[in-house]
Structures are given as C-alpha cells and as structure tokens.
Amino acid sequence: MNIFRLAGDLTHLISILVLLLKIYATKSCSGISLKTQELYALVFLARYLDLFTDFVSVYNTVMKLVFIGSSLAIVWCMRMHRIVKRSYNRELDTFRHYFLVAGSFVLALVVHEKFTLQEIFWAFSIYLEAVAILPQLVLLQRSGNVDNLTGQYVFFLGAYRAFYILNWIYRYFTEQRFGRWISWISGLVQTALYADFFYYYFMSWKNNAKLQLPA
C-alpha cells in the first residue's frame, strides 16, 4: 500500500468519525443530508458483495465492515433515533436521489467490465458514489451557514477520492498497473463535484471565517 492510498483511506475514515462525533456530541444531524447517507450505505453494500467471495487482507475486510456498519448506523440514527431525528432538515433535503440510483444502475448495466452480478454492482457503486454527495451539497447551499463539523466532514469526504486519484497515478508508474478506467473517470467526476466546496472551504480557512456557501 502506498502513501496516497493510505491517506485516502484515512481521510475517508476521518470523515466518518467526524460525522459520528457531530451526531453523538451534539445529538443533532442538522446540515446532514439523509439522502446522501442512504446513497453511501447503498454504495458500500453494492461494492462489498466481494466480502463473501474474495479475501484481500484483514485491513481491507475490517475497513469494508466499518464503512458498511457506520453508514447503516448513521442512516438508522437519522431515521430512528428519538432525539437526533428531530434536527434533520427534512424540508431542505429534497433532492430526488432515486434518480441518481436509477441512472447509476442503468449506466452500470450498459458500461461494465463483465456481465456478472458482482461486476455490475461494482460499477453501479462506483457511479453512484461519484454523485452521492450532490444531495449533501444542495442541502448545504440551501441552509447557507455550515457548522464546523459538517464542513470538516464534507472536506475529508472529498479529499479521500482526490488521494485515490494520486494513488492510481502512483500505481500506474510503479506497478505498471492501470486501475479500471471506470474508477478513473468516476473518481475525477466525484472530485470535480467538490471543486466549488473546496474553494469556499479554503477561503474560509484562509480568512479564518465561518464557512458559508453562496446561494
């Protein structure tokens, strides 16, 4: 494992920890999109079907279980937890996320490496992950002010795929391995969707000001 891959995994893990911390410490999920959280849960469930068929390493298996478990736990909290669910910004979180699911699935049926259940679900998870942040970004834009932990959460979640791209470039040169082009293109799209957010995140950091997204 190279440093970029590790940095990617760690920022991904940190983003989840920050989100859990926010929900646990403030007993609130304000500013968090349930739609995005549901999409992520679906992404992990679809991608890690290989838990049952391929073993890579203890590290991989543990991380996969952590990603699946934490995303389901967050969805459960936002839907079921007596106190947490009260703070959910339902009226702002109206993105039609089923269209993203349907679109990603159709694309996976058309563009995949092999016509097998696992490969189609893998491609589906990659496409869906690329766009899964959209409901969250829309929610942040609508609510205007972004609280500190929510801002950090989105930042780390965006940074993770950018590190993966560096990891793919690194592996291309060191291992003569070209990662699947489906992930390259989706990863670039995914990172590009954060460009706007990154810009305002760095500006607020530079000016030591509260993060605000223009409407």
Binding site: H12, D50, N60, R177, G179, S183
Partner: peptide, 10 residues
C-alpha cells in the same frame, strides 16, 4: 501494456 484491475482497493 499495463495490466488492469485494482481489486485490492476499497
């Protein structure tokens, strides 16, 4: 040419 597949990634 470079081989494909990064099945070891998350």
């Amino acid at each position: 040419g470079p081989k494909s597949s990064h099945k070891d990634e998350l």
